[in-house]
Amino acid sequence: MTATIIKQPVPAASRLHGATASAHFHDSYRMALAPDPRSALQFYLDTVVHTPRWVDRLMALRNAIVSRLGLKDLGALGAIDRARPASAYRPGDRIGIFTLLHVSDDEAILGDSDRHLDVQVSVYRRDGEISMSTVVHVHRLLGHVYMLFVAPVHRRIVPAVMRRMR
Rank of each mutant, 00 (worst) to 15 (best):
G92A: 12
F25M: 05
G78H: 01
I80V: 15
L45S: 08
V121S: 00
R82M: 12
L117N: 04
D46Q: 10
Q42E: 15
S39K: 03
G96M: 04
D106C: 10
A83Q: 15
R62E: 06
L77V: 15
P35L: 01
D106M: 08
S131M: 05
I130Y: 03
D36V: 03
V103L: 09
P37E: 13
N63H: 06
L41E: 01
G78V: 05
L71Q: 12
Y89R: 07
D46A: 14
V49D: 02
L61A: 14
D46H: 12
G128K: 03
D105C: 02
T47N: 02
D105H: 15
T47Y: 01
T134V: 15
R62Y: 04
V55F: 01
V123Y: 06
R62I: 09
V66E: 00
S113K: 10
P91V: 08
E107A: 10
A79D: 14
Q42H: 11
D93P: 03
S133V: 08
Q42W: 01
A86T: 08
S131F: 13
S67I: 07
P91T: 07
P85I: 11
Y29T: 05
A83N: 13
I65C: 09
S131A: 15
V103W: 00
E107V: 07
S22D: 15
L58S: 12
R57K: 11
S22V: 12
V135E: 04
S113Y: 00
D27N: 14
H102S: 14
H26Q: 12
S22H: 13
I130M: 06
R84C: 11
E107G: 07
R90P: 00
A19N: 12
S113C: 10
A88D: 13
G75C: 01
L117S: 04
I95M: 08
L71F: 15
G92P: 03
V121I: 14
V119I: 15
D118K: 10
S87M: 09
S87P: 00
H50N: 14
A83L: 10
R62G: 07
L101M: 12
R57F: 13
V66P: 02
A32V: 13
R125T: 05
T134K: 05
I65Y: 06
T134D: 02
I95F: 04
R68E: 04
P85G: 09
D118M: 08
R30A: 12
G75R: 04
A79K: 06
A83G: 13
S67G: 05
G92M: 08
Q120W: 10
R94S: 06
A60R: 12
L41F: 06
R82A: 14
V55N: 01
I130E: 02
R38K: 14
M59T: 07
S87A: 15
F43A: 08
R38V: 07
A86K: 06
L100V: 08
W54V: 09
G128Y: 09
P52E: 02
A108K: 03
R62T: 06
D93L: 10
E129T: 14
R62C: 07
L69W: 12
D73M: 00
E107W: 01
A108C: 08
G70P: 01
S67V: 01
D73W: 07
D93K: 09
S67N: 06
A79Q: 13
R38P: 01
R115H: 14
I130T: 04
L110T: 02
A32D: 15
S22W: 05
S113H: 05
D81E: 12
D46I: 09
L45M: 13
G70R: 06
R68I: 13
L45G: 07
R125W: 08
